[in-house]
Amino acid sequence: MGQDPGDGERERSAGVQLARMLRRWWEEAGDPPGRTRPTQQALAGRLGVDQTTLSRYLNPNHPAVAPVRVVEALHTQLRAPGADLDRARELCRAALRDNTRHQAVTGTSPVQSADSADPVDDRRASGRSRLLRLRPALVVMAVVVSFAAGMAVQGQLTDRDRTTVAGGGEGPAASETGASSQWPLMRIGGQDQFTPGRALQHLLNAHGYDVRVDGFFGRDTQDAVMDFQRSRDLPPDGKVGDQTWPELVKVVGPGSKPFEVRAAQELLHNTGQGGTPVSGRFTAATAEDVKHFQRSQRLPVTGLVDVHTWLALLRNQRPPVKAPAYQQGGSPLPSAPG
């Protein structure tokens, strides 16, 4: 049986060619070895679209035409070849033109546009419309409930509680946004968290120490912590918590030194948002990963790893997928190159 001429025409259509190109970008994002390809779920979050929509953009068999802004964002996020971008823009615009012409003649679209809707989308849109109409009332209700809860908590605070919070005692400090800013506590003999341990060791090296970067809080790490604490007039107890972390971390951005950049990249990579290469270079891709994380935590989206971003990163770490080699064999992992 011969191929339907319509199939050949469809194969040559701009929408299918665009979907194939975007799919190739995503599949090649893990090359060369050492780079991590983001999951479609993580990538969709960075682009501000849902995963189902992104899957359509990347599927030549059932494509939807990705808007130009999404094509450009995919090109950046997936580190696609620079020469592909202009061609992708041309295919995107051509596909949108094809859809417009086809709809004018037949009332249907040969390749579904990102803005076209099916019955399920209509129901979702209807639900969103109802939610938007209810939103003002919900906001007022939330404000009233929050105010009442705040008054109740305030009434329960004793004078001692107020003194502790205001004086920065042993309880959690308050951040500028009013949220708890308690830093994780790391110490020798405590539970080894691996990635936060490596970040700590990178930061110690950023301050001039020569510490093995293995994620293992051993005696050499403790000695470096105690020496750092003495240099900052902190109690030299060898524990890294609310007082020591804020002194250790540095604002990381373009031009930052490799050690502090690696510390931030290690933590970003372990938040589960799709993988950040740990290169020691603060690239445009690293800045985009920082911005995505900041959005997810409702922090100011600056692309710089400031003290609030460090805190959020440390509080949102995942355990290792499997036990690190040093835990399996009883000895630390080899150091990362300095």
Rank of each mutant, 00 (worst) to 15 (best):
E11K: 08
A88W: 14
N59R: 04
F259L: 04
Q294S: 06
R23C: 09
W310T: 03
G330R: 01
L22F: 11
M21Y: 06
D121Q: 09
D237K: 02
V165N: 03
G197C: 09
A152E: 08
R198Q: 15
A14C: 09
V120I: 11
R87E: 15
P332Y: 10
Y57F: 15
S231H: 07
L85N: 07
D84M: 03
R262S: 13
L204Y: 04
G215Q: 02
E90G: 11
R133G: 13
D227K: 11
A285C: 00
R23N: 11
F282I: 00
D192H: 10
Q77D: 15
S296R: 04
D122K: 00
N59L: 08
D306S: 05
F282T: 00
G15E: 02
S335C: 12
D84W: 05
V305W: 11
L58A: 07
T244I: 08
A312Y: 06
L203R: 03
G2E: 09
V165P: 04
A264W: 05
F147I: 13
T271P: 10
Q297H: 07
P254I: 01
G30P: 08
G30R: 05
A94F: 04
T53R: 12
K291Y: 01
R123D: 10
R24Q: 12
A64L: 09
Q17M: 11
K250T: 14
P110W: 12
G280N: 05
N59H: 07
L96N: 01
S116C: 05
L267E: 05
Q103C: 09
G2F: 11
D223P: 00
Q294L: 09
R56T: 03
E288T: 05
G15T: 06
A152T: 10
L54N: 04
R315W: 04
T309M: 08
V139Q: 10
G48P: 07
L54S: 10
T271E: 05
E28N: 13
Y326R: 06
